[in-house]
Design a protein around this nucleic acid. Structure first.
Lengths: 297, 297
DNA sequence: TAAAAATACTCCATAGGTATTTTAT
DNA sequence: ATAAAATACCTATGGAGTATTTTTA
């Protein structure tokens, strides 16, 4: 018994005729005869009494008919349901992100998106790049944003926005708004703790110029970007932070950028996903959304 | 999409593995791969992300799974339902019967049967043989009992009980309990009206012996068998009736049989059904029942 | 005689298989 | 190195067709 045979049966039942069913289904009459015979053999009972010129369904056929209709409609429901889910724009999007994109980029990009697709909710998991990539490898996560390419040929790295680490200071404490790298050593430095991505990136750039943080006077070490910002505002010293983290403060003149004349500390964020995983539609359009948003940045 | 493919899909989904599904279904792994591919092509979406050694169902697969389960169980329900109806012993049995079997035979045979199958009810349509055969030809009726073979090669005539037309009289009026046919003319005769099956049968027998009813003194004509019986009991005259119609009266000595020494008026009843119609189970066992009952008569 | 289903056959798609390759663990 | 899925290829069943026969209205 398969669905097609049930459709043939149902048509014969409704039409009270093999040949009319064959026309309705665009099949030939012998084909119909065959299918009915197959069903009769399978169920071990006659379904129609053939009276030469007309047919009459048996009691078994009456029972089968009601059930057959249910299966047929249910089968059609499946196609509908698949079509629905393929364009489904509801549910929760889980994204793993390292601090800067998670705290300073995502919220901005989400607001616009949520206006367009209010039925999609978000959960941003802040974690370091390594952890995010592991989660994706283990399929605990479908999408992530990281600040470092850590290999793994199963991961798709999609170039995202470019970040810049910039030197910031309190406007009241530092008058210069552009200096060579060496000039920074005149000021006490406020830093994130070791293990922070920003700290590691910063050190990498400074060491590349032969100026590890040890050469600076360390005024304080804080466990969060916000704490560092507060310390700089209070005049404890200068610091080096992502421009995304201080965009608001720069705009309002609460903090001031000291442009380096001899160093650009740029890095790129990547959207990461497992190469072999299929993204639900909601993820796909969000991915599209943030990629176009990032171009308008 | 057919049911078998959905079963394959469901097994893969549950087992989270093509090869384990192949074992569970006693198929080979490439066969499973093929079916999944077919479904994926049909729905236009991936159902499982292949990660080399393991697989993960997509969102589409999750949706499909719940629907697939419903179809699979419904398909099994069909087989169950057909099995049920094939041995279904409920509902109403409609039988067309001519007067004698309908009034004097059926009630007796039904009581025993109803004890065994209390969920089967009856409706007996009393009608003449011609009408019953027409109803069966038109498929308004599945089963009948008639007292005459009226041809029609689409009708199955199953020999049923043999009836005997016997001469009856009031014991107080007639002393002889056996007479030659001629001896009957000494007594006034009570008859059914023309058109009655019993009347027609009786005339046929008497005319065969060169003794049409006209040779008798007609004491009365009544429109029912019971009226004739009452008339005979009252001593109005003798009559000729089916032995089934007077069985009780003979047993209790209310009426008396006058055996004819030179004529046996026998006829056979037939159970009739359309050759091409399938009888529901309830009809079948009732048919069986009355055929064995008739042997114990 | 005509309309409907059954029968006999042919053809081709596909479900199933075996053998092998690819891929990730 | 191994387990799992994909791929390539073969076979046979059965779905669909055409042509014809049977049957009853």
């Amino acid at each position: 018994m398969d669905i097609h045979q049930l459709k043939v049966f149902a048509s014969v039942y409704k039409n009270r005729s093999f040949s009319r069913a064959s026309e309705a289904l665009h099949l030939t009459q012998p084909t119909i005869s065959n299918h009915i015979k197959t069903l009769e053999d399978e169920f071990g009972c006659k379904l129609f009494d053939r009276l030469g010129r007309s047919i009459i369904p048996t009691k078994e056929a009456e029972v089968l008919y009601t059930h057959a209709l249910e299966i047929i409609t249910k089968a059609e429901t499946i196609n509908e349901a698949i079509r629905e889910i393929k364009k489904d724009l509801t549910g929760k999007i889980m994204i793993g992100a390292s601090t800067i994109p998670g705290v300073y980029l995502m919220p901005r990009m989400m607001t616009e998106f949520q206006k367009k697709y209010p039925e999609i909710s978000f959960q941003i998991q802040i974690s370091d790049s390594k952890g995010i990539l592991e989660s994706i490898s283990k399929h605990d996560l479908l999408l992530g944003i990281v600040g470092a390419k850590l290999g793994n040929d199963q991961i798709n790295y999609i170039p995202f926005v470019e970040d810049q680490l910039i030197v910031i200071a309190s406007p009241s404490k530092v008058k210069a708004n552009s200096l060579p790298l060496k000039g920074l050593t005149d000021y006490p430095l406020v830093l994130r703790e070791e293990g922070s991505g920003t700290r590691r990136e910063t050190e990498k750039f400074l060491e590349g110029k032969g100026l590890p943080p040890g050469k600076f006077q360390i005024a304080g070490i804080f466990g969060s970007t916000d704490a560092v910002k507060q310390a700089v505002k209070a005049g404890l010293g200068i610091s080096i932070l992502s421009k995304f983290a201080v965009a608001d403060e720069l705009e309002h003149g609460i903090l001031q950028e000291i442009a380096l004349t001899d160093l650009q500390m740029r890095r790129r964020f990547y959207i990461v996903a497992h190469k072999k995983r299929t993204l639900p539609k909601a993820y796909e359009i969000f991915l599209e959304h943030i990629l176009t948003e990032s171009n308008n940045l």
